[in-house]
Design a protein around this nucleic acid. Structure first.
Length: 628
DNA sequence: CGGACAAGCTGA
DNA sequence: CAGCTTGTCCGG
């Protein structure tokens, strides 16, 4: 391939060292006999240290007044010109360093040119014919033919059809020989999709392990968030499945979103990008065309949903509607599958008050709410713990010293105990905490009622019922995206119970059960009717009124140098700055202040945030924060 | 990041 | 004033 290239004279490149604390490039020389390309990892000598570095610019001029050293050698294949450009874009878009993005696109172990497998063609790899009348396939082909966009795909529809149809479109016409990149939210989805495609005769490379074959191409490349920076032989299209998933957002700074990066990668490569989602959030639909399926098809592929209106229930019945016991018993009797009960609060008791004086149990030091955590092992923890500063004290009212406290709000651990008593059956607790899950599984391996946080929806593949014990907690979450997230959770839960009406005559009707005091909330209605578009119009108006995304672009600024940076930004006319909150004493950081920065558009916001250069680790910028 | 070098604190 | 800590700068 490179044999025909004109012999370069000794030339210079810019490299970015693989060191956490360095956010700038250096110029190095490439000896004549060494062949390099942009994106490769080389070894350099920097300040008498041998470090790895990525070539980020090739054939650059040597800056005046510096003497450049030659590189010490080539280490590994990693990125390429396009993905280096993508990493630079990500650094701009998320106001952060580009090293994390270069790492995301690099192999875990060294990959040399000679290690690469032989390139093969994808042509003719689909052994089974696609059903050309499948509505999902038709919609996918439409989108592929018209340049991509968002596919509003109901939760129980076949996501595999999207991938197969996209692949089929790449195998014909002028796209022939181009490769497909598929992003999925979780690791287990990577395995599942690769297995299914391989069964159909499609060659797959999963990232990060199959770096070499993905690099060469002729395979469908499948991976999670980081794979958006991964190698793809010759990119023709990107499919992002369940694009609304929070798994695509990195929790650590910079808090980037793989969906956004996927769209830019496709744009840079002249490839097509298709995002699928059962309930596409405004962040996605505001900028893209949305392809919906025929209403009857969409409706039929949402789950059945039963609302338990809690408005007239006795408040003393706690989390459980009077009908709940009966509903669960019937499900267990008529269906082999487990019943899943969702309560998104961990711990045992989340909010307590004194039985005699009514005072809410609060921390003497920081005023935070005191709660009872799950004890070590199975015994009950004898103390209250502050949810903010983690200080502990005995279960006594500090106001009147009474030892009698009443529970205002329970956590999943207590709910599991209570449900067990209510139903007269063992229950299994599942939370995001690995340890407690393992323990519960050992203790009560045959429990058919599973109680826990949203984590259940990711661990369990099927259920006869998914009960949302306190759905209002989702609807009222203190985030502007709460409505969209609530609907997405219902969609996710729908995959466990299957589409409405799928049961044979006389069999149990698997369904979602939603306990709420807002039975006519637009989210509940949208899910019940399988029509996610229902929430978009009202949501868009609300966002516009509050000047929240997508009507504006926002970022949160925190850290020791935040105040200085905000002062600098205040001079920018395209930017609006304000105090966001005072985070009270957390165990780690004492009273850190966060500022909210707002601009009319993402471009204006990112341009303004570019002023961060010169600031170091004392500045934390979170672009597109979800937690406000 | 981590080495180099400068400026500040300590002690007999 | 050596011997040590702490801070700031900079690398091609």
């Amino acid at each position: 391939m490179s044999g025909a290239k004109a012999p370069d004279l000794l030339h210079a490149v810019n490299v970015l060292p693989d060191l956490t604390g360095i956010d700038r490039t250096f110029t190095y020389l490439i000896p004549n006999e060494v062949a390099v390309t942009t994106g490769m990892i080389v070894r350099i000598n920097l300040a008498n240290r041998r470090v790895r570095a990525w070539i980020v610019d090739d054939h650059v001029d040597i800056p005046e007044g510096v003497t450049c050293k030659p590189i010490e050698g080539v280490v590994s294949l990693a990125l390429d010109v396009d993905r280096i450009a993508l990493a630079k874009f990500a650094g701009w878009r998320y106001a952060g360093r580009i090293r994390p993005f270069l790492l995301a696109g690099s192999p875990e172990r060294i990959v040399r040119e000679r290690d690469l497998p032989d390139p093969r063609s994808l042509v003719g790899t689909l052994s089974e014919e696609l059903d050309q009348t499948d509505p999902v396939g038709i919609a996918t082909r439409d989108l592929m033919a018209s340049g991509g966009g968002v596919l509003q795909l109901p939760p129980t529809a076949q996501r595999l059809s999207v991938v197969r149809s996209a692949l089929e479109m790449l195998e014909r016409g002028d796209q022939q020989g181009k490769d497909l990149l598929v992003l999925v939210p979780e690791r287990r989805d990577v395995e599942t999709l690769a297995r299914r495609l391989r069964r159909l005769g499609v060659r797959c490379a999963t990232l990060p392990e199959d770096f070499g074959s993905a690099f060469v191409g002729g395979v469908v490349v499948i991976g999670t968030r980081n794979a958006v920076f991964g190698p793809v032989g010759s990119l023709g299209a990107i499919v992002v499945l369940d694009a609304q998933s929070e798994s695509y957002v990195d929790q650590r700074a910079p808090t980037w979103n793989a969906t956004v990066i996927a769209q830019e990668r496709a744009r840079l490569a002249g490839a097509i990008c298709i995002l699928t989602s059962p309930a596409p959030p405004l962040a996605i639909t505001a900028e893209s065309r949305v392809r919906q399926l025929e209403r009857p098809y969409e409706r039929a592929h949402w789950p059945a949903l039963e609302v338990l209106d809690r408005r007239s229930d006795d408040p003393r019945s706690g989390l459980y509607s009077p009908m709940l016991g009966e509903i669960v018993h019937l499900a267990l009797e008529r269906d082999d599958r487990p019943v899943a009960c969702i309560l998104n609060r961990t711990g045992r008791l989340r909010l307590l008050a004194c039985r005699s004086c009514g005072e809410v149990a609060r921390c003497e030091h920081c005023d935070g709410a005191m709660r009872q955590l799950e004890g070590a092992g199975s015994e009950v923890s004898p103390v209250l713990t502050c949810s903010r500063c983690a200080k502990t004290r005995p279960l006594i009212c500090t106001f009147c010293h009474s030892g009698q406290l009443k529970v205002l709000r329970v956590g999943a651990t207590r709910a599991a105990e209570e449900l067990s008593a209510l139903l007269g059956l063992p229950t299994k607790l599942v939370t995001g905490d690995r340890e407690s899950t393992d323990r519960a599984q050992q203790d009560e391996i045959d429990a058919r009622v599973i109680v826990g946080t949203e984590a259940i929806l990711h661990r369990q593949s099927s259920a006869s019922l998914v009960v949302f014990l306190d759905f209002d907690q989702h609807l009222f979450a203190p985030r502007f995206g709460a409505a969209e997230e609530s609907l997405s959770i219902l969609a996710l839960a729908g995959r466990l119970v299957g589409p409405r009406g799928s049961h044979s005559v006389g069999a149990f009707a698997r369904r979602l059960v939603v306990q709420t005091r807002l039975p006519e909330h637009e989210v509940v209605v949208a899910a019940r009717e399988g029509d996610p578009s229902k929430i978009n119009a009202t949501e868009l108006v609300r966002r516009r009124e509050l000047n929240l995304p997508p009507s504006s672009a926002i970022a949160l600024i925190s850290g020791e140098e935040a105040a200085a940076f905000i002062e600098l930004l205040a001079g920018d006319p395209s930017i609006e700055v304000g105090l966001f909150d005072d985070v009270p004493n957390t165990p780690k950081r004492q009273g850190s202040i966060r500022y909210l920065v707002r601009a009319m558009s993402t471009r204006l916001l990112c341009e303004a945030l570019s002023a961060r250069e010169g600031f170091g680790a004392g500045l934390r910028i979170e672009v597109d924060p979800s937690s406000i």
